[in-house]
Design a protein around this nucleic acid. Structure first.
Lengths: 258, 258
DNA sequence: AAGTGGTCTAGACCACATG
DNA sequence: ATGTGGTCTAGACCACTTG
């Protein structure tokens, strides 16, 4: 890396091509990303000020800010007011994990089936009462489902919902549709908010049988608690999935072209 | 909710107060959030166009865009070009999980200790060879560490790094510092990129002993593979933590004031 | 005091979707 | 054709950090 800003002596300093389809801010974000990857700005180092970048590339400050914002959202840069913008070192705690691996299950309803294994009224046990804000022994509805992808068992589900006939929620929730809506977000949505927790577990006897797995094998449990638009919890439960079904993987730092 | 835009007949329509410290875009984001929470714009519904919002509140389009951008990043809105901006239904797959719960372990070096249990040269087994791009039997260094918070065992670590004395990486990695740097990002950083995977597991005999846990109890394994600035993998390994240490929890949708 | 990022304006043109 | 979001400008002032 030379001090004049060239990545090496065989490449020209890049410019913004306003005739290209790619917007200027995206081009600039790519340039900055390559400069960081090339070592021009090392981790912990400061990049030039936004106004000077704007002058250098013939862009207005707002456009430069948009480019820097892209890299900041990706966790590559950190802005410090009054001080500058710095290249962020790769940190494990900067990582974010999503549920893309199971989103695929719900994308194409044709390839996915939901089989209701059980649906029955029940009395709330201590944990359900606490979760749903009910008194112990209150009426709830228990649902157990099996989710199949390409006719192969993928996840199983156990949930309990309020038994409150003043709302249409219960009726709707009994259907197969709302379950995939919770994942795809196609429908209007009955949930205002939701809390999600991922917990390590092992397949119990029944789960192993249903999912064609081995009892005692490590698995993920995805536990949820959903609230309606009156801020009242109306359902909780969990999905159980094998590690190859629910993949929690993420990439940090400077990977190619992303 | 009345059709004139009031949330109810006891509240005035909100305005932007430019004398307040809170920037206009943040105030507007809060207004829109409350309007959505109040049911003015239901899930799947369309909010007014950015230009009309700008006129209504006396703000320029760019400022409105910033407010809408905040709520879009939070997953509450979806922008569709040429079509409008819509209220997004709560979806489980829209969730993102972070490692904030273990970040705390590394925040204050005074309350955290790293104890090296073992550090020895080794020959790469098949998996290590594959991960680090070495041939089987190549020299690597095995490290086992115990991480303590407030003198209580919190996580254990097992890792293998390249034994390549042409780089200073190895020397640095042997120190205690770089480990917490990987979490805190304080130092300059030796990693260009990193791949992270969370896997469900159970404590084995040794982990249980070290962490004062029960053998066979479900736990998380946080596996990593780090690359240097030449895009060469130089280390891989994993951390093992109990579910109460590594908490994967997130909130979706309209929670109060966030 | 000077430099930095943070916010904001009042326009403009473009790409895209819909009727 | 109209309306939408997407991009962009050329300034401006503010809050903050540092020397």
């Amino acid at each position: 890396m030379l001090s004049n800003g060239w990545v090496n002596n065989s490449t020209m300093p890049e410019r913004i091509d306003k005739d290209r389809l790619e917007p200027a801010y995206a081009q600039l974000a790519g340039i900055l990303r390559r400069q960081i990857a090339g070592g021009l700005y090392p981790p912990g180092g400061k990049i030039p000020s936004e106004s000077s970048i704007g002058k250098q590339y013939g862009l207005s400050v707002m456009t430069v800010r948009q480019a820097v914002g892209v890299l900041t959202e990706q966790g590559l840069l950190v802005r410090v007011q009054g001080c500058g913008t710095f290249v962020k070192a790769v940190t494990l705690t900067g990582s974010r994990f999503g549920l893309e691996s199971i989103e695929e299950i719900f994308r194409d309803p044709g390839r996915t089936r939901v089989k209701v294994l059980r649906m029955s009224p029940e009395r709330a046990d201590a944990k359900t009462a606490q979760k749903l804000g009910l008194s112990e022994g209150a009426r709830v509805i228990l649902i157990r489902r099996l989710l199949l992808r390409e006719n192969l068992p993928a996840m199983c589900h156990e949930g309990r919902i309020r038994c409150d006939f003043t709302r249409p929620l219960v009726e709707a929730e009994l259907e197969v549709g709302p379950l995939s809506d919770l994942f795809r977000g196609q429908g209007a949505g009955v949930a205002k908010k939701c809390e999600l927790t991922i917990i390590p577990t092992v397949f119990d006897n029944e789960e192993a049988r249903i999912l064609n797995q081995t009892e005692g094998r490590p698995a993920f449990r995805l536990e949820y608690l959903v609230y309606d638009f009156d801020d009242i919890p109306f359902g909780w439960g969990w999905f159980t999935a094998a590690p190859e079904t629910l993949v929690l993987r993420t990439k940090l730092g400077l990977w190619d072209e992303s």
